Simulated assay, not measured.
Amino acid sequence: MDQLLNKEQYCNTWMEESEIFRKKMVYQWLTNFTPNGNILELGCGSGQGTYQLLKKHQVLSLDNNDFLINEAAKLIKEQAKIHKCNFLELTQEDKNIIKDFAPKVIVGWFLGSDGEEVEKYTDKGTNSEEKWDQYRKKIEDIITSPDICTPSVEYIHLANRNIFSSNYNEQKTFAATKKEYDTSIFSKINFEVVDVKIMAWPTKDSHFQYIGNQYYSNENSFKAIVSILARRKAT
C-alpha cells in the first residue's frame, strides 16, 4: 500500500494506469455496456472514463481527490460537472445535488482510494487484503443506499479486475457472478445482475499496486476486467 499512501501518490500512479487503460480501449469497451441516460459516476479518476461516457451521456462525477479532480477537469473541460464530496460522509448538499441530477445509471469503475483513506475507514490491525475488502464493501453499501441509488436509478454498472480459470465458460461465469453480486449487493435493493462481460487483461505493463488482490495467476488462469450490469426489477 506504500505507493498509494496519500492522495497525490494515488493520483500519480492512477494516471499512469488509466493511460494504459485508454491505450488498450478499456474505457471505450466499458461504455459499450452502459445504458443510456444521466450517468452518476463514482470516482472521476483521471477523467478518461468520464470522457468516454460524455460521448453519449450527461455525466455528474463524484470524487474527493483534488489531484485527480484537477487532472480530470483538464480533459473534460466544462462538459461534465465534477462534484467534490466524500462518498462515506455525504452532506445534505451532496445528497440534494445527486437527487436533482436524477441519475438513471450509476457507474462505479475500478473503485479504490489512497492508503490514508482506506486506513481511515477500516479496522485497525487488519492486513491490506482485509482492509481493501472492508473498504470495497463500504463503497458498495453507499452505492446501494437511498442517498446514491435514488428512485430515478434503473441501472448500476460496475467494473473491476479478477482472475478466471483458463477453461472459462461464459454461461457458468455469468451464473456465478450473478449469484455472488445479487446475494451480497443487489437483491437487498430489488436489483439483479443482467449482464456480465469479460475482457482479458494482462497486467505486465502495469506498475499500479492493487490493494487487496495481488492477482496471482498461473498457467491455468488468466487476468481479466469484468463488466457487471445490474437492473432494477420491475415492480
Score class of each variant (00 low, 15 high):
L158W: 04
H157Q: 02
E180T: 13
Q214Y: 07
L40H: 07
F191Q: 00
L75H: 13
G115T: 07
K104R: 08
L54R: 01
G45H: 07
K137V: 09
N213A: 04
Y155I: 12
D66F: 00
E119L: 10
S166L: 06
E78S: 12
K138L: 04
K197H: 08
D123M: 03
V118P: 00
G108K: 00
K233R: 04
P202Q: 00
F21A: 07
G45C: 10
S187V: 02
V26H: 04
Y121M: 03
L30M: 03
Y10V: 00
E192S: 11
I185K: 15
F164H: 13
F208N: 12
K179I: 12
T235Y: 12
E93D: 14
D147I: 04
G212C: 00
I39P: 01
Q79E: 15
E117P: 01
Y10Q: 02
K233F: 02
G47K: 03
V153L: 03
V107N: 10
Y210M: 10
E19P: 00
S113K: 06
A72F: 14
Q214N: 05
Y135M: 14
V194L: 10
L54F: 05
E8K: 07
K138H: 04
T203S: 03
T173S: 11
T31D: 12
L90S: 11
K95P: 02
V196Y: 03
I97V: 15
Q3E: 14
L42W: 03
A159H: 03
S113V: 09
K124L: 05
Y215N: 07
T183Y: 07
N169M: 01
P151W: 15
G43Y: 04
V105I: 08
K55E: 05
Q3D: 14
D63N: 02
D205L: 11
L88V: 12
K99I: 09
I148M: 04
A224G: 14
R161N: 08
M1L: 08
L68F: 01
Q48G: 15
E117I: 01
L53Y: 05
G49F: 06
F222T: 11
H157K: 00
D133G: 08
K138M: 06
I211P: 02
F67E: 15
Q9P: 14
D182H: 10
Q79C: 11
I76S: 11
N6I: 01
N38E: 05
N32L: 07
L53Q: 05
I76W: 05
I69K: 01
K172R: 13
R231P: 09
T50D: 13
C85I: 02
T173C: 12
P151Y: 15
I97G: 15
M15Q: 13
E78I: 10
K95V: 05
I228V: 14
E117Y: 01
C149D: 04
E116A: 07
L111W: 02
T150E: 10
K223F: 02
R136W: 06
I69C: 00
V107A: 05
F186P: 03
N167Y: 06
T122L: 02
K95Y: 06
C149M: 10
C11S: 15
T235E: 14
T177R: 09
S184T: 15
D63Q: 02
D133W: 05
I148T: 04
P146D: 13
N36I: 14
Q9C: 13
G212W: 00
G49I: 13
D100C: 12
P35G: 00
Q9T: 14
R231E: 09
G212S: 01
M199Q: 08
E19C: 02
N6Q: 06
K188W: 01
Q134V: 11
K104W: 05
E154G: 01
